[in-house]
Every structure is written in structure tokens, then in C-alpha cells.
Design a protein around this nucleic acid. Sequence first.
DNA 1: ATCAAGTACTCTATTTTGTCAAGCACTACA
DNA 2: TGTAGTGCTTGACAAAATAGAGTACTTGAT
Lengths: 120, 120
Amino acid sequence: MEREPSDTTHSYCPVYDSIELLQEKWVLHIVRALLEGPHGFNELGRAVGGANTTTLSQRLDHLERLGLVDKTIESTMPPKTRYELTPAGRELQGIIDAIDAWARRNMSRCKKHEASGAAA
Amino acid sequence: MEREPSDTTHSYCPVYDSIELLQEKWVLHIVRALLEGPHGFNELGRAVGGANTTTLSQRLDHLERLGLVDKTIESTMPPKTRYELTPAGRELQGIIDAIDAWARRNMSRCKKHEASGAAA
DNA sequence: ATCAAGTACTCTATTTTGTCAAGCACTACA
DNA sequence: TGTAGTGCTTGACAAAATAGAGTACTTGAT
């Protein structure tokens, strides 16, 4: 009675897949930034808190392939690109809102708890 | 006009910190599993889809230090441990619900989009 | 009694993932 | 002219996650 990640009796859960996506490093930060409006590439990198270009383009590429982000090249040579959320991407607002709500209510307490050496 | 991750003018956002926490690999899966009820260690590992023990104990340790997870050793020698969410941890339900709602509405479309070679 | 499997972990080695630095090709401003 | 900005890509490298073995002990089957 073994279970593998690809186990078909346990999988196919879209929620599991979504979690897999959202826990990719920077993805949630990218979504949060993009919910505030379209961004350029470097601009976005700064907005999310300093993701490096390699990772950033990798993540954006993934989000684009999933149809959550739209990439528009406004001009090639002075390079100008615009990244923005598609309708499906904009629906992620609910998730960010939930995180926002939780964070404002619990995060400071968490850090306090951590600092007070709760692992004793 | 440089910006570093530790930039105090831009930081201190609890939301940013929460995202940092939630995007740690397996954390969302762990929370989702624990919302269904308490779990033992190996049991939890299987529930989240096969995280290895090293990573799992690391994550549980982190969540415990933040006061989101409670660890109870029920017996030392037949080893038996119980992991469960604290009240603050249980409040993460809202986030999982939001992910759940989004996933059911959009995830299948995403995968379709991806498969259809949208990166052409 | 002995074998197989389960509990909760930790340790080491290897693979996967993410990051850093540099560079291209060009514009804008001083 | 030089410095800084735009949007990326590539190759070398570091950090994180993984597999797999090992510890110590119990339960259930044979």
C-alpha cells in the first residue's frame, strides 16, 4: 500500500497543484506586486524585494504559460515590457487578501513568540 | 537610490513576512493537512504528499517556534507524537479556503493553457 | 522466537533549485 | 563622453531539498 507523489488515487487535486504553484519562491510576492498594477521587469524585481533577474524571468515565464500573467513588449529597443495580471490572475486577489487579513492579526504575535524562545 | 531586502523604509510589512513563511516549501501543504485534524510525524509526511523527514521536521520546528503548531509527545518509547494547529494556526483556514476557491475555479484552465503551448 | 513493518527522528551524500555577476544593445541625461 | 537606466540571457556557483541509511523500540503475524 505505497503512495507516490504521482499516485492517481490520491491526486488529482487542483488545490494541491495551486499550492505547489504558490509556494514557488517569489510567486506570491510577484502576484501581490502585480495586483497593484502593471510593472516593468526591473521595476517588478525591486517591488518584490530584490529578486534576481534569472529567477524573476523564470517565474514570470511560468505564470505566463499558466495564463495568469500577460506580457506585452511595448518597445524592443529602448527595451520596455509590461507585465500584468490576466483575469484569472486578478482572481488571486482573494488569496492575497486572506494572507493580508491573517498577517495583520497574527504575524506580530508570531514573531514575538519566536523571539521569546518558544523552542525551549 | 538602492534598495536592499533589509531596507527599513520599505520593510516592515507583516504581509511580506507572512508570504515569506507561506512560500517555504511544504508549509501550505502542512497547514492544509493539519486543518483536517492532528497528525503524527510520518503520517503527516504522507498526508502532504511525501515530504522527506529532514525537511518536514525543519518546517514543523519553524511553525512550532512561531506558535502556529503545537507538538505533543504522547510517548517516548513506542514513539508517538501529535502535531496540531494552535488557535493562530487554525486562523490560516481563511487562506487555505481562498486557495481552494481559486483552485477550483481556475486551476484546470491553467493547466489546459499551459498544455496548449501558450509560450509559442 | 523471529521476521516484517511501523513509530520519530537525525546524519551524510547527492540532486535540485535558486542566486550572483557579467554582458548585450540601446537611450536619456548631464 | 560617461554614467545610469531599460530587459533580458548565459554560465558559474551556493543554498536548499532529497534519498537513503541508521537508531531504538513496539506491535502483529507466523
